[in-house]
């Protein structure tokens, strides 16, 4: 435990300061392991398919949330997609200005109807249009870690 410090008298009232000293460590999981392996080693974005419910899950999901079947069939959804929505973000988590502003997009991949959120790059915010075609820009192979940031961003094509 970090030592709790003493009353904050400047604020005119007594308060104790403290923290919760934890680091969260998230495993990619069983389905995630395969997803990130393909991302890192093969520049592929994989999904899992439930044929009964006609749903593709990207990133890969171990099970279909609708019918609860375990999903074994994987599909390469390709690294291009269609911009479904976007935002231009001018502030960070602490409300500080971000310069240049960051562009985030919701991208529908291939023909899958599966959507993922990622950054957009090599594009002026004034040129952004819903429906525009975008493609993944990959981190170079030696820089990849098996994380979602192995894709640097998506850019218009």
């Amino acid at each position: 435990m970090s030592k709790v410090k003493l009353p904050d008298s400047k604020a005119g009232k007594l308060a104790w300061k403290g923290d919760i000293p934890i680091t969260s460590r998230y495993t990619a999981g069983v389905a995630g392991q395969k997803f990130f392996q393909a991302l890192k080693e093969e520049e592929k974005i994989l999904g899992t398919v439930c044929n009964k419910c006609e749903v593709t899950y990207v990133p890969m999901k171990l099970f279909c949330e609708r019918c609860f079947a375990q999903l074994d069939e994987t599909v390469d959804v390709g690294d291009t997609g269609r911009l479904v929505s976007f935002s231009v973000v001018y502030i960070d988590l602490d409300s500080k200005k971000v310069n240049p502003p960051q562009i985030v997009g919701l991208i529908e991949l291939g023909n899958s109807q599966a959507r993922m959120v990622h950054r957009l790059g090599e594009v002026k915010s004034s040129d952004l249009r819903v429906g525009m075609k975008v493609k993944a820009v990959w981190e170079m192979p030696l820089g990849r870690e098996g994380k979602i940031t192995d894709i640097q961003y998506f850019k218009p094509v």
Binding site: M1, K3, V4, W16, G18, I20, P21, I22, T23, S24, R25, Y26, T27
Partner: peptide, 23 residues
């Protein structure tokens, strides 16, 4: 619980009263 590093106790600490016990 293994997600909670270095030890899940880090999350348990706040069950103690923040003014009279945690110090």
């Amino acid at each position: 619980m293994s997600s909670c590093q270095p030890h899940p106790q880090g999350a348990f600490l706040t069950i103690f009263d923040h003014t009279t016990e945690r110090p």
